[in-house]
Simulated scan of single mutants.
Amino acid sequence: MPNVVEAQSVKLAYPRHEPVIKDATFTVETGEFVFITGASGSGKSTLLKSMYGAMEIGGGGMSVGGIDMRSISGSKLYKLRRHIGIVFQDYKLIREWSVEKNVMLPLIIAGFPKDVCRAQAQKLLAHVKLSHKADKYPLELSGGEQQRVAMARALAHNPFLILADEPTGNLDDYSSQVVWELLERANEELETTILVVTHHIPEMFSADYRHLMIENGVLYEIR
């Protein structure tokens, strides 16, 4: 099986700006847990976006799940995103949908029967300790609860890769701990590959991990 992510001399830039990523060369193997750190504005989130097709690659090459991200078509990108879980700092839940239906979203998109979607959502809401909020709406939840719903949604379709952008940046200690535990368990029990962008690696993080750092537009591995 190919590496989950392969990047060779990747360059990323926004229109009419200098490259924010000047050289990113790295691989992520199946089942690894990888942190990417760096100062604010260093390009961490930009690099993450390139892995799910939200940022065009300006130079070098990258593949995700064996798919060339430089020449990916709309249909292939849609298919790839169906097998990736993405966790954003601002949750990106659908306000008009219940908590349960938000968790069901990836399965609805994939065409699973309604009873299968509901059973998986109920299982995951119990996993994130929010079964009692299944019928609530996102704006009725705290920020920490919304992020836990987002985590459940990211896990709903058993993705081979989870990309998380500052997943605990706005959370209280309890919700942060729940999110880190969920990511650890997905990595250890399901062998899901995890890639997390963050300012700081949690001190109490117990799983094995790799640490990549971006400085002055260049990505380095910290050993």
Rank of each mutant, 00 (worst) to 15 (best):
82 R>L: 05
63 S>A: 12
84 I>H: 01
49 K>N: 10
80 L>G: 01
78 Y>N: 05
9 S>A: 13
89 Q>G: 03
44 K>L: 06
99 V>N: 06
101 K>I: 10
77 L>A: 05
101 K>C: 10
34 V>L: 14
47 L>P: 13
22 K>R: 09
79 K>S: 12
83 H>Q: 05
100 E>T: 08
95 R>F: 13
35 F>Q: 08
82 R>H: 05
75 S>E: 12
85 G>C: 10
30 T>V: 01
15 P>L: 02
10 V>A: 03
45 S>W: 10
90 D>H: 15
40 S>M: 12
36 I>S: 08
47 L>T: 03
52 Y>A: 04
35 F>L: 09
103 V>I: 12
100 E>H: 10
63 S>C: 11
86 I>N: 00
15 P>R: 04
27 T>I: 06
18 E>T: 15
47 L>H: 11
102 N>W: 02
50 S>Y: 08
95 R>N: 13
103 V>Y: 02
100 E>Y: 10
25 T>N: 12
73 S>L: 07
27 T>G: 04
103 V>Q: 01
55 M>A: 06
34 V>A: 08
58 G>A: 10
43 G>T: 07
102 N>K: 07
92 K>P: 01
46 T>Y: 03
72 I>F: 14
89 Q>A: 01
33 F>C: 11
80 L>C: 12
21 I>L: 11
81 R>F: 10
58 G>P: 10
33 F>W: 06
88 F>M: 03
30 T>Y: 07
9 S>W: 00
19 P>T: 07
12 L>I: 14
17 H>L: 14
51 M>L: 12
15 P>V: 05
21 I>Y: 05
20 V>M: 14
53 G>Q: 03
100 E>G: 03
46 T>N: 03
48 L>S: 02
13 A>V: 07
22 K>Y: 10
77 L>F: 13
21 I>D: 02
80 L>E: 00
91 Y>H: 13
89 Q>K: 09
40 S>D: 13
90 D>T: 14
60 G>R: 00
65 G>V: 14
41 G>F: 05
89 Q>M: 01
19 P>R: 08
52 Y>W: 13
46 T>H: 06
38 G>K: 07
60 G>K: 00
20 V>Q: 08
67 I>V: 15
67 I>M: 15
22 K>T: 04
86 I>E: 01
75 S>F: 04
105 L>T: 15
52 Y>E: 02
45 S>R: 07
51 M>I: 04
74 G>Y: 07
90 D>L: 03
87 V>G: 00
16 R>L: 13
14 Y>F: 13
31 G>E: 09
40 S>E: 11
27 T>V: 06
80 L>N: 01
49 K>E: 04
67 I>E: 13
80 L>W: 12
39 A>R: 15
12 L>Q: 03
53 G>Y: 15
58 G>L: 11
58 G>H: 09
50 S>E: 02
39 A>I: 15
14 Y>D: 09
88 F>G: 00
33 F>S: 04
45 S>C: 04
25 T>E: 09
57 I>N: 02
78 Y>M: 11
77 L>K: 01
79 K>A: 15
32 E>I: 12
48 L>P: 02
25 T>R: 03
82 R>E: 03
43 G>E: 01
14 Y>Q: 02
42 S>K: 02
72 I>K: 02
